[in-house]
């Protein structure tokens, strides 16, 4: 049984956008909105080489956090969460490795198949890397109210 709280599991399943914070070259956080893909164990994000600074930051420092906070982008779910974890960049072949997560991507953004069919028009956009996050610690606000202290769960605990 996963240690991820069910409220967070729901958010990850439905969210169309999440905010990924990485540690940048200045030693500060730098945050990027991306589509979170969730297989129940790990979180996957994909990044084009066009917008690859975040990949460079992750390779230098794999500690990341991912927030899901926008009810509009979560099918009306009002809960909010932030997940800290360790990331690694998967890019054996930037041309095709990311297609491993295409079924998860397609489920959230069906129009992606149309854009892939026009791949020749944006060839660099479809040279991509996968960011795989192993969650370590989850903070969540069940009622979405950020003025309250969040609940916290750590890897290894059973929710």
């Amino acid at each position: 049984m996963s240690w991820i709280p069910s409220a967070v599991d729901d958010l990850l399943k439905r969210a169309l956008v999440a905010e990924l914070s990485v540690v940048n070259h200045r030693g500060e956080t730098s945050t990027h909105p991306l589509i979170p893909l969730w297989d129940g164990e790990k979180i996957y994000l994909t990044s084009s080489v066009l917008f690859s600074r975040k990949l460079e930051h992750i390779k230098r420092n794999p500690k990341v956090a991912l927030a899901v906070t926008d009810p509009v982008a979560c099918d009306g779910l009002t809960a909010r969460c932030s997940i800290q974890g360790d990331a690694r960049v998967l890019e054996d072949d930037p041309h095709s490795t990311w297609e491993d997560v295409l079924p998860l991507w397609r489920a959230k953004e069906p129009a992606i198949d149309f854009f892939i069919s026009k791949r020749f028009a944006f060839p660099l956009f479809f040279e991509r890397s996968i960011i795989e996050i192993t969650p370590r610690r989850v903070s969540w606000w069940a009622d979405g109210n950020p003025t309250r202290e969040p609940q916290v769960a750590n890897a290894g605990q059973v929710a």
Partner: peptide, 20 residues
């Protein structure tokens, strides 16, 4: 309607909180 604030926590991981 809201923002997400982040910073480097003492354990080295980015910390985040939504905020009004």
């Amino acid at each position: 309607p809201h923002v997400v604030v982040s910073w480097i926590a003492d354990d080295g991981y980015p910390a985040q909180t939504p905020a009004h």
